[in-house]
Simulated scan of single mutants.
Amino acid sequence: MVKPNLASRFKTFGQYECHGSSGLYEFLSYKIAEDEELLVLASEAKDGQPVPNLFLGAIHYLLLSGKEHELKEYYPSLVENPKNPLESFQSFKDFCRLNSQEIKEIVKAKLVQTNEVRRCAYLYPVFAWIFQQTEKPLALIEIGTSAGLQLLWDKYCYTYDTEETFGNPASNVQLSSEIKGGHVPILQPKMPPVASRTGVDLHINDLNNEEDFLWLKSLIWPEHQERSTLFEKAAQVVKENPISLIEGDGVELLPRLIKGIPDEHLICVFHTHVANQMPREVKENLLNKIKASGQSRDIFHIYNNIQDRNLHLDYYLDSKEYKKLAGKTEGHGKWFTWELN
C-alpha cells in the first residue's frame, strides 16, 4: 500500500530540494514518483519521516556498505567518473528488486538524522549575538542532535565572503558560507564561552559505531563530496571532545534538562531541520515548554521548520517575550541572510 501523497512528495523533493544540487536524486525522484512498485517499497518508512531522503539514503547505504551492482556506476560518491544519471533508473529499479527485503528493514528502522555541520555557519553568528546581549556562558541543549556535530560549533573555523577567519583557525573543520542581503553579523575574534553541551535524540548515532557512521554518510547526497569530507572531519572533532548525548524524547525531557542548568549559565535550546518531523501538537508542546521555562529563567530558542523554513530566535529575558527572525538559510548552510540587529 502506498502512503498518501507519496508520489507528490517525491516530485516535490526532486523539484525543490534536488534541482541544482543533485542531478541523480532529482532524476530518480521523478521516476520513483511514477513507479508504484518503488512507492510501495518506500511506504515502509515510519510515519513522520521525510520518505524521499530516507528511501534514497537506504539505497546509498547498501551501496556504501559494499553491495556490488552496476548501480554504483552512477554514484559520484562511489566512482570517480560516474555515468549519466539520466540513464540510471533501470539499474536503480533492478537494485531495489534484488535488495527489497534489506531496503524494507532499513526504511522501517532508520531515521533521517542528517548531521549537516555547515549549518553551524549560520548558528555561530546567532550564538555570538546571544552572548553579546547577555554576556553569560551558554548552556547548549540540542533537540534532534543525531551525533552531536552541531554542539561543537565553537570548535570549528568560519569564513564569510572574505579571507577573514573566525573561530578556531587551527581546526580541520573549515566552514565557509555566503551572507546574502545588506546586513552582516558583528563577530568578535573570541568565541562565546560554552558552559555545557547536551544533545537529545530518539536515536543517538555513535560515531564510533561503524553502522551509525555509515548511515550518516549515506544521508549525504552522492554528488556532495565536500559535505562528506566535512562530516568526516567534524566526526573526528566529536570523538576528540566527548559530549553528553541522551537518547529520548527531547521535548519531553526538556524541563528536566533546563532544571539542571545553573542560574549563572544562559539556556540555549536549538534545533535545525528537525521540527519538520514533529507532529503539530509536538511543535506546540515544545513552544509551550519554552514559554513556561521563560517565566522563571532567561532562555533562548533557535529553530526552523515550525511555522516556516526560516531561522527564528524566540527568547525570554526577565520573563519578557521576544520573537525575532534570525534569517533565511539554504538547507545545507551554503548561504544565509542576517536579520538580527
Results as ranks from 00 to 15, higher is better:
Val79Pro: 09
Val79Glu: 06
Glu80Arg: 15
Glu80Phe: 12
Glu80Trp: 06
Glu80Ser: 14
Asn81Gln: 09
Asn81His: 13
Asn81Ile: 12
Pro82His: 07
Pro82Glu: 08
Pro82Asn: 06
Pro82Lys: 14
Lys83Gln: 13
Lys83Tyr: 04
Asn84Gly: 08
Asn84Cys: 05
Pro85Gly: 05
Leu86Arg: 11
Leu86Asn: 12
Leu86Ser: 08
Leu86Ile: 03
Leu86Trp: 11
Glu87Gly: 02
Glu87Ile: 07
Glu87Phe: 08
Glu87Arg: 11
Glu87Val: 09
Ser88Ala: 10
Ser88Gln: 03
Ser88Trp: 00
Phe89Thr: 08
Phe89Ala: 15
Phe89Leu: 01
Phe89His: 02
Phe89Arg: 02
Phe89Asn: 04
Gln90Gly: 07
Gln90Ala: 12
Gln90Pro: 09
Gln90Met: 07
Gln90Tyr: 15
Ser91Asn: 04
Ser91Gln: 13
Ser91Met: 01
Phe92Pro: 03
Phe92Met: 03
Phe92Ile: 00
Lys93Tyr: 02
Lys93Arg: 03
Lys93Ser: 03
Lys93Ile: 01
Lys93Met: 04
Asp94Ile: 11
Asp94Arg: 15
Asp94Gln: 14
Asp94Tyr: 10
Phe95Trp: 00
Phe95Asn: 04
Phe95Thr: 06
Phe95Pro: 00
Phe95His: 02
Phe95Tyr: 05
Cys96His: 02
Cys96Phe: 08
Cys96Ile: 12
Arg97Val: 11
Arg97Glu: 11
Arg97Trp: 05
Arg97Leu: 09
Leu98Met: 07
Leu98Arg: 11
Leu98Ser: 02
Leu98Gln: 09
Leu98Lys: 12
Leu98Phe: 06
Asn99Pro: 06
Asn99Cys: 04
Asn99Ala: 13
Asn99Thr: 07
Asn99Arg: 10
Ser100Thr: 00
Ser100Trp: 02
Ser100Ile: 07
Ser100Lys: 08
Gln101Phe: 06
Gln101Arg: 05
Gln101Cys: 13
Glu102Asn: 01
Glu102Val: 09
Ile103Met: 04
Ile103Ala: 03
Ile103Leu: 02
Ile103Val: 13
Ile103His: 02
Ile103Arg: 00
Lys104Trp: 06
Lys104Thr: 06
Lys104Asp: 00
Glu105Leu: 11
Glu105His: 10
Glu105Lys: 12
Ile106Ala: 01
Ile106Trp: 00
Ile106His: 01
Val107Met: 10
Val107Tyr: 01
Val107His: 02
Val107Cys: 11
Lys108Glu: 09
Lys108Cys: 11
Lys108Leu: 14
Ala109Ser: 15
Ala109Gln: 04
Ala109Asn: 15
Ala109His: 15
Ala109Lys: 13
Lys110Ser: 13
Lys110Val: 08
Lys110Gly: 14
Lys110Trp: 08
Lys110Met: 15
Lys110Asp: 10
Leu111Gly: 07
Leu111Phe: 14
Leu111His: 15
Val112Cys: 05
Val112Ile: 13
Val112Gln: 05
Gln113Leu: 13
Gln113His: 14
Gln113Ile: 11
Gln113Cys: 03
